[in-house]
Amino acid sequence: MKLKVIGIIAILLVVVGASCQSDDQIEFKRYYSGGSLVYQQHCQNCHGDKGQGLSALIPPLTDSIYLKNNKRKLACFIKNGLKGKITVAGRSFDDQMQPDDIAPLEIAKVLTYVTNSFGNNMGTVTLQQVQDDLNNCQ
């Protein structure tokens, strides 16, 4: 009987603990898991399931410094595509990425996924931030 009570209390504690995640954490998880689907549909063929890219043709998504330095431009890269020479992970790339006109919310999700996968750790990219960035595309 005692054991049962202890067991029930333990389970309750775990449940309460799990549901006590902050709103931010829940939002992050929602964006991240949704983003992984967007990634599979729109990005994975070229950039690879591990963000590894393809030789000197397609840049990897594993260069955290590049992603940090271009943080406010990433949404525009997805929406408008990318042309011209860039240096990623110490290698130069100058092929073209096609524009992909997906919804700002999808951009926010996929950027949350990319910037927190493949060894990157940059936190949530919110819809608000994406909308601000898209208004400032060059």
Partner: peptide
């Protein structure tokens, strides 16, 4: 070479 869909993944595998 400009194939945006299945070619990169095909040639990643062909490598």
């Amino acid at each position: 070479t400009t194939c945006p869909s299945i070619c990169p993944v095909m040639h990643r595998n062909m490598l």
